[in-house]
Design a protein around this nucleic acid. Sequence first.
RNA 1: GGCGUGGUGGCCGAGAGGUUAGGCACUGGUCUGCAAAACCACGUACACCGGUUCGAAUCCGGUCCACGCCUCCA
Length: 481
Amino acid sequence: MNIRFYNSMTRAKEVFKPLSGKRVGMYTCGPTVYNFAHIGNFRAYVFEDLLRRTLEFFGYQVTQVMNLTDVDDKTIRGAKNAGIPLDEYTEPYKNAFFSDMAALRVERAEVYPAATDHIPEMIELIQTLLGKGVAYKSPDGSIYFSIDKFPDYGKLSKVDLDSQRAGERVKLDEYAKDSVADFALWKAWDEDDGDVFWESPWGKGRPGWHIECSAMSMKYLGETFDIHTGGIDNMFPHHEDEIAQSEAATGKTFVNYWLHCGYLVVNGEKMSKSLGNFFTLRDLRENGWRDREIRAALLSGHYRKMLDFSERLLEQTRSVLKSLDGLFDRLSRRVSSSSFDTPEGSLGDAVEGAGKVFAESIADDLNVAGAWAAVHALAKQANKALDSNEVSARDAELALDTFRKFDRILAVLDVPSGDGGANGVPGEVASLVERRSAARKAKDFASADAIRDELLALGWTVKDTPDGAVVTPTATSPPGK
RNA sequence: GGCGUGGUGGCCGAGAGGUUAGGCACUGGUCUGCAAAACCACGUACACCGGUUCGAAUCCGGUCCACGCCUCCA
């Protein structure tokens, strides 16, 4: 099956063709580790995970590189304010980033290069650019890229620099740069940098932000690679500058497919640290939301669209997952309790149909809504078949396997493995359930209801099914909701 | 000012000239001692005004509104 992606460079959906067979090289802009990442940041990482999992689903072997920006204005300022060395300052944020990513079930990239470990590569790239005459040294010892020497500048973001309004900031740098849009490849050391600097052929200093992505992506993926992603706010100037540096240095196309995800917004406004309208994974957990609910909420809409992240969205997501959990539970019980003698094939068509819709949707520029529709279509058919007792153990296992397959991409369904049944129910709970069943049999409904309340207090919900009582852990609700 | 994105039923959210997207919630029903779950039923929705067309949420022109980038930002 052809996979199609919307390529920001051409502004059109294109059939994806990797450079070499089934191998895909992919670079994803990572975090600047000066603080905890917020949920808006994670929207991008979850989108990239969706992309990666989709490629793997279709048999591609992905080499993903995600950088860690551990030297820039913010990290330097943070370390200085804290009175500790730069690496000591960034370390906890790196760790928090990885633990949050794992919680959101983001598959690990193959390489996580840190900027501070790749200064020599950056210096080398800058020297190449100086040698080609597309970069120049300013009086203060900084090195700038000259966008006038790169005619293609603006081809990704389609900006026309001549029509850009010069910002306030420009005044500060005017004396040092030939042109306002020129950007720093190397920043000469100044007092504010403290002891953060590296030696270079142009004196001590530190790299500019954009150069790290060019140097590290090309080091690990080659001068031309398949996919580069990031949030749409990185398109200009960051990705534009990466293209300029890389292509000016190599003379080759830097990246074949550019994919950008839309913003995560709160009440219609972009979530950002400067606006103060952000929350972290920790904040959401404190409000009672589970990691998988958060991931599912992030996967509720198309990656290129704005996503309005709200309590209501999380509530809706919780409802969806809860009802699917119920189905998986029913199917698991059927696998373990039923024999293979019920009529077969009642779910075969539904499985096939859902699988087709799922694959076609996700292959079409990661249309996750279509994929969800496939999940729901199969869920409805399975529930119906279970209601009319037409599901054999084999059918149930087939359905569960299909959901597991879908979950290789979604990673939120949590389809139980193995033979399900009553495992994980504490003895105390099990005996209460038994006593309640006995009471019901004796038509002693007052006792039965009392025991049900008792179980609820212990965190277990009872459902009476034709096959007997079933207990499941009660879903917790966020406080005050 | 330049460039860009978007406005779909109470809410979320696909679609992109003709065929029910899907989900959440609500309401009614089936089932049930009750409850829960599940299933069934129920919404002619596409910002506004023109135009093209046999036919437009989808194409064209205009208008309004919202958001974003142009400064670090996923």
